[in-house]
Each structure stands twice: as structure tokens, then as C-alpha cells.
């Protein structure tokens, strides 16, 4: 396949903390515009790898290329081209909806006119126009999560990293959230997502499963389910994570 189709390329990405190997020679590629699920048990090394790809920390060895930029030398450019959202850090509770939008737009150097226009679109899309001057703290959790996602992609990044974005929200909101993810992906934004909901893993185009710092499986959900003779991703995950000797 053409190399340009890939937006994230890692070759032998390794990160060590002292003698502990958090990421052990990760080699994978993420296609442009796909929804890539990054699964693994707690402590398998997901967060470490994600931090590296976001330019927040440097690998011990290996090559990593994100959005066409090198992770060692071009982190500033990478940061301009990615969006990030996690369950823990999303929006400023003590700012209003619009202030949050303006703030994040401002961080990415968007023009005032551009911000205003994007904000308008966003508020219309979420049907929360009349809440533009309400504090984030006063909104229901589900709205906050959806809003946080839309704000994370307000600067039209090439990739958006989502770290357990739907933890604890109700099932309907969770699906509305995934509708937003699908739409973003449809519009060409690559989505890189971690989750503990295994049914959500099945929404992804491709998923990788990490066990003890290594990627033990990487394929489409369907292929993985077939390959491991399972009913669903939950089964696959349990088989792989419980018994790391079952490998590709």
C-alpha cells in the first residue's frame, strides 16, 4: 500500500522506565481516516504509547512518525496537527461553553472569525445554542463529553486521540458520542481511541490489543473474532489478555 495512506507509523517503538519495559518494540500503522481502537489491560502500556504519539514524551528507541512529522524532532508540528481528549481532562468547568471554545480555538491559533463561525456550527450541531453562556459545570455529563470531543477537533486536526472518552456515560449518550466519532472519521479525521467497553471496540475499523507492553493482535474486529473463534471482542480480549501465550 502507498505509504502516504498511513498517518501514524511506528517501528520498534520502545519505552523503558529504568528496567521496566512499558512499550516493547511496538510496530504498527494507522490509516488515514480510520477509527483505530487501542486496547489493553490496565498497565499494559497504552497510556505510555499514547503520550509518545502526542509528543508528550520521547521513546527510548524506535521510529515514530505522526501526521508526517518525526516524534523526536518535530513535536511542535505534531501538536498542531492533533487533538486530544480524555475522560479526566476535558473542559474548564468554571468557563462558559463559548469561552471554552474560544480558549481552545485560540490555543491553536485560529482567527477570531474562524472561531466564531466554528462555534456557531458546533452549537447548532449539538442543539445547545441557548446554553452558549452557561458554565460547563452546569451541563449534564453526557453533554460535556460530547462538547469536549467537538472542541478537541475544532481546529480540524489530522488525528484525534481519545483516552477512554465514554467512561460512565449513559448508553444513549455513549452512542451519540460514537455518532460524532463516525462523522469525524467520515470527514477524514483519524480517530485513535482507547476504551474499556468491548462493544465499543467493535465500532472501530481496526483494533490493536496490548498485553504487557507488546501488541499481541492487530486486525479488524471481525477478523479477530473469527481468528480466535469467539462470539465477540470481549471474548477475544479475555482470551488474549488472560493467556498471553496465545499470540498471532
Amino acid at each position: 500500500m502507498d505509504k502516504h495512506e498511513y498517518i501514524i507509523n511506528t517501528v520498534d517503538l520502545t519505552k523503558k522506565f529504568g528496567s521496566f519495559v512499558a512499550n516493547d518494540k511496538l510496530t504498527f500503522s494507522v490509516k488515514k481516516g480510520e477509527i483505530f481502537g487501542f486496547l489493553g489491560a490496565n498497565g499494559a502500556g497504552k497510556t505510555t504509547a499514547m503520550k509518545i504519539m502526542c509528543g508528550l514524551s520521547k521513546p527510548t528507541s524506535g521510529h515514530v512518525n505522526v501526521a508526517g512529522y518525526d516524534i523526536y524532532t518535530e513535536t511542535e508540528k505534531i501538536k498542531k496537527n492533533i487533538g486530544y481528549m480524555s475522560q479526566k481532562f476535558s473542559l474548564y468547568e468554571d468557563l462558559t461553553v463559548y469561552e471554552n471554545i474560544r480558549f481552545y480555538g485560540g490555543i491553536y491559533g485560529m482567527s477570531r472569525k474562524n472561531i466564531r463561525q466554528k462555534a456557531e456550527n458546533l452549537l447548532t450541531k449539538m442543539e445547545i445554542k441557548k446554553y452558549r453562556n452557561n458554565l460547563i459545570a452546569s451541563l449534564p455529563l453526557g453533554w460535556k463529553q460530547k462538547l469536549a470531543f467537538l472542541i478537541a477537533i475544532i481546529h480540524e486536526p489530522q488525528i484525534v486521540f481519545l483516552d477512554e472518552p465514554t467512561g460512565g456515560v449513559d448508553p444513549i449518550t455513549r452512542r451519540q458520542f460514537w455518532d460524532l466519532i463516525y462523522e469525524a472519521s467520515h470527514n477524514g479525521i483519524t480517530v485513535f481511541v482507547t476504551t474499556h467497553y468491548m462493544d465499543e471496540a467493535e465500532y472501530c475499523d481496526r483494533i490493536s490489543i496490548m498485553v504487557d507492553g507488546k501488541i499481541v493482535a492487530l486486525d479488524s474486529p471481525e477478523n479477530l473474532i473469527n481468528k480466535y473463534n469467539s462470539k465477540n471482542m470481549d471474548d477475544v480480549f479475555v482470551k488474549l489478555a488472560r493467556n498471553p501465550s496465545v499470540k498471532l
Binding site: A41, G167, H196, M198, F237, A241
Partner: peptide
């Protein structure tokens, strides 16, 4: 089981 992976949850 919140925030705990599927295996540990099981």
C-alpha cells in the same frame, strides 16, 4: 469495576 480492564472485571 470502573476503569478496570475486561479481564480483571471478569
Amino acid at each position: 469495576t470502573t476503569g478496570v480492564d475486561a479481564v480483571s472485571r471478569k
